[in-house]
């Protein structure tokens, strides 16, 4: 039997006491539900169980998804659809109005294109560096380490921290009189860096901080992938006298490839949406040097004085289509892996 093992019954007395009112409530609920079952049958009960989730899901996920398109084709600052006027493709046209398509600053919505550019470079660099570090971490954690779960926990720790906390921790460390400058000072660097006011350093900081916060998650998935590679393959390679480097390139990497692909796509999807920690760390600045797409949408839709929900919706749909493509790739990979698993 694959059913989960039962919990010990000695500790269940207190639990039973705590559960008593809940159980009474459930028995109370059962009475009308038996009536419902009688009238609708078992199929009707399936609908009953599914209904709350699908209702909430429909109102707060599906409906917004649909009316987002309507929004993107209306203008004005009002939020109620009825008060908005239809403008057709004007918002999209506005996003794409540029004098010179090679220079984002010549566009009507230069902030949008700046955000696109920033996000693009952020995604490329962050994902590449993060996957590399995650892979190295996973490979090291997969070695014959004492207390592996401790080391795994070390790298995983920041993953659970809230983005706001992450942003604040690093804002504190990276400030002019912060820990990092102190450490550099100890090594003899006299002039303190202005990490969060220099355009390049700030951009680098957002990449570094987001890698710090999320790398452990990807390392964990890669580690699971590494541990799923059968040990006897390595033993066979050892028997054949294969060199370690060759083992890595010819056994580890090919067998890890499906996991690696999933991790890359997942990281891409997340990186495109980067917002929280950057917003707290830099607020998009200095200037627009760390203004990323989600912040652009948020500010265009809600925060700025000249808010334009229609424009924000149009931008979000453009971003959404990128995510859809990435998600489809991911599902495609997942399907392929599943088929492979079946052989």
């Amino acid at each position: 039997m694959t059913s989960p093992s039962p919990t010990s019954s000695s500790s269940s007395r207190l639990g039973a006491l705590l559960m008593a009112p809940v159980n009474a409530l459930m028995r109370l609920i059962d009475v009308p539900l038996r009536g419902l079952q009688k009238s609708t049958g078992i199929g009707g009960m399936a609908a009953f169980f599914l209904a709350p989730n699908m209702l909430i899901f429909g109102i707060f996920v599906l409906l917004p998804l649909v009316i987002n398109f309507v929004y993107s084709m209306t203008g004005g600052t009002a939020f109620f659809l009825a008060e908005r006027n239809f403008v057709g493709g004007e918002q999209y046209a506005r996003l794409f109005t540029c004098q010179n398509y090679l220079d984002p600053m010549s566009c009507q919505e230069d902030a949008f294109w700046t955000a696109v550019g920033n996000t693009f470079w952020f995604v490329i660099l962050q994902v590449a560096l993060m996957i590399l570090t995650a892979l190295i971490t996973a490979l090291i954690l997969n070695r014959d380490l004492a207390a592996r779960s401790f080391w795994r926990a070390v790298f995983f720790f920041p993953v659970l921290l809230s983005p706001v906390v992450v942003g604040l921790i690093w804002k504190w460390i990276l400030q002019r009189q912060g820990l990092l400058n102190f450490i550099l000072f100890q090594f003899g660097d006299t002039e303190p860096y202005t990490w969060l006011t220099d355009r390049t350093w700030t951009f680098a900081a957002t990449i570094g901080v987001s890698i710090w916060a999320h790398m452990g998650f990807y390392a964990l998935i890669l580690l699971a992938g590494l541990q799923a590679i059968p040990k006897d393959l390595y033993e066979a390679a050892e028997m054949d006298g294969t060199k370690p480097a060759r083992v890595f390139w010819r056994i580890t990497l090919p067998l890890l490839a499906p996991n690696l692909l999933v991790v890359v796509v997942l990281a891409l999807i997340r990186a495109v949406q980067i917002f929280d920690e950057v917003y707290v760390l830099t607020g998009g600045g200095p200037g627009t040097s760390t203004l990323y797409l989600t912040q652009y949408i948020y500010e265009t839709g809600f925060a700025s004085a000249l808010r334009n929900p229609g424009l924000a919706a149009a931008a979000s749909i453009l971003m959404g289509s990128v995510l859809v493509v990435l998600t489809l790739i991911q599902l495609g990979i997942g399907r392929k892996n599943e088929n492979k698993g079946k052989r």
Binding site: L63, P64, L323
Partner: peptide
């Protein structure tokens, strides 16, 4: 994979 960032405007309404 529908993230909040894509639907925040209509969801707000």
């Amino acid at each position: 994979m529908v993230p909040l960032s894509v639907i925040m405007v209509p969801l707000y309404s």
